[in-house]
Simulated assay, not measured.
Amino acid sequence: MGLPNNGRRQFLGGLLAAGIVPQMTWADAGSPAFLSAAVKPDGNFVLCGIGEDLSIRFELPLPARGHAAAAHPTRPEAVAFARRPGTFAVVIDCMTGAQKAVLTSPEGRHFYGHGAFSSDGRLLFTTENDYEAGRGCIGVWDAQKSYVRIDEWDSGGIGPHDIKRIPGTDTLVVANGGIDTHPDTGRTKLNIATMEPNLAYIEAGQVIGTASFSAEWHKCSIRHLDVSQNGTVAFGMQWQGDGPVDMLVGTHRYGEKIDAFAASPQDMRNMQGYIGSIASSADGRFVAVTSPRGGMVQIYDVLSAMLVRTLALEDVCGISVCGDWFVATAGTGALRSISKGQQNTLQAAEFAWDNHLVRI
Rank of each mutant, 00 (worst) to 15 (best):
I158A: 02
F326G: 02
Y274P: 10
A29S: 13
P63Y: 00
G168F: 08
P244L: 09
P244K: 09
R65H: 12
Y112M: 08
E52W: 00
E132R: 13
V287M: 03
T25Y: 01
H356E: 12
F286K: 10
P22H: 03
P22Q: 02
V207H: 01
V140Q: 01
M306Y: 02
T104Q: 13
G178N: 03
R84M: 14
G7V: 02
H182N: 13
E256G: 07
I166Y: 03
P292N: 15
P41Q: 14
G19L: 02
A98W: 00
D184V: 07
P183E: 03
T104F: 04
I166T: 08
D151V: 02
V140N: 00
Q342T: 14
A80N: 12
K189D: 08
E314P: 03
A330L: 07
C317P: 13
F88W: 05
F261A: 07
S320T: 04
D259L: 12
C322Y: 00
A352Y: 01
R165K: 02
P22M: 02
L47R: 04
G255F: 04
T310I: 10
G186A: 04
V21A: 11
G243N: 05
D354M: 11
E256V: 03
M95I: 08
A234P: 15
S36F: 04
M306H: 10
I20A: 02
S105L: 00
P265K: 07
G331M: 03
A33N: 01
M24S: 05
S36H: 05
V289N: 12
V227N: 05
G66Y: 15
L124D: 03
S146D: 15
S155G: 01
T345A: 11
M306Q: 14
A33E: 05
A262L: 10
C322Q: 03
F351Q: 09
A279K: 08
V316L: 08
R83S: 09
R293A: 15
R75S: 12
M195Q: 03
H110N: 13
A349D: 13
I319L: 07
E350D: 10
I278S: 09
F58C: 12
K40S: 04
A200S: 13
T74E: 14
D180S: 05
I150Q: 05
A215I: 02
V302A: 06
G51F: 00
D93H: 15
D162S: 11
A78W: 14
F117T: 00
A282P: 03
I275M: 07
T87I: 06
G209D: 04
